[in-house]
Design a protein around this nucleic acid. Sequence first.
DNA 1: TAGATTTACATGCAAGCGCATATAATTAGC
DNA 2: GCTAATTATATGCGCTTGCATGTAAATCTA
Lengths: 151, 151
Amino acid sequence: MRTERIDLRLANEAWESLMTAHARLTALFAAEDMWGEAGMREYDVLYTLSKSDGPLRLCEIQDGVLLSQPALSRMIDRLAARGLLRREADPDDGRAVRISLTEDGTRVQREIGRAHAKSIGRELGAALSPAQMRELRELCTRIVERPQQDA
Amino acid sequence: MRTERIDLRLANEAWESLMTAHARLTALFAAEDMWGEAGMREYDVLYTLSKSDGPLRLCEIQDGVLLSQPALSRMIDRLAARGLLRREADPDDGRAVRISLTEDGTRVQREIGRAHAKSIGRELGAALSPAQMRELRELCTRIVERPQQDA
DNA sequence: TAGATTTACATGCAAGCGCATATAATTAGC
DNA sequence: GCTAATTATATGCGCTTGCATGTAAATCTA
């Protein structure tokens, strides 16, 4: 059907623009001089933990990070070795590991987080009005929270 | 000022939702069984070349790909070794390399591209209306095409 | 036009990543 | 309750990546 062809093209244009926006801003943020103790991907982990109330499992952290399970496992090794987070056995599930920020990790996350939030505000603020930011947030949220369908 | 604090929060929420949408869809696409001869990052390069009329330089390709210059250089090595693209010396600039798709590269790009476009249409189509896709495209384009300001 | 700077790409090397697989604990089937 | 399947995480290994740096050509400077 003609309408579907148009929608396909439109969907691809929308996705490409989202990819490009993501790539440009990510590259821009990565180039900034604020990732002292962590690196951007490591910060993702610290941030994910900071949002959570209690400790998280590896598999819970992984939902927020674009990284394979083994890679995440070893990244957490390194972060723990540097004293930024803590691994404890889960008393209720012998397979699981409960991961949480140390005080040092919390401090590092806050320091980087503050600077990073400013950058985000600066870049998005220069491009979009508050109403447009709300609109963007709604649209992207809709993509993520779409009712789960078959595989 | 109070308004700026609200905008900062809003901007960060918008960016996080964009990151999450990008991560979820990327992971979903990566898990699909269509990247036979290329891999997703390599497809990015093939796609970038397919959009261009003539050959591109390394530095021109790099704008579309989130990869360091040496990594891109070697990825192009591998793609050329597999016969998917061609490297020629630029007659006008002895430093530059002109990179273009071979027939095989064009074929691979088209095959993957068709399948990938369907996936994009399916996923975005399930989440957004055409009007919302247009809106998303406009907003993301605005982020990228924002008038260049200071470093 | 000789020297200095910049631009475009390549390469050595260590660190990180993904794939396949191993290990161990939980849950499901019967 | 015993085996099979599943879930959660770890490890071996080869490939890829990024950083620092090298090389070579173009451009700028005087």
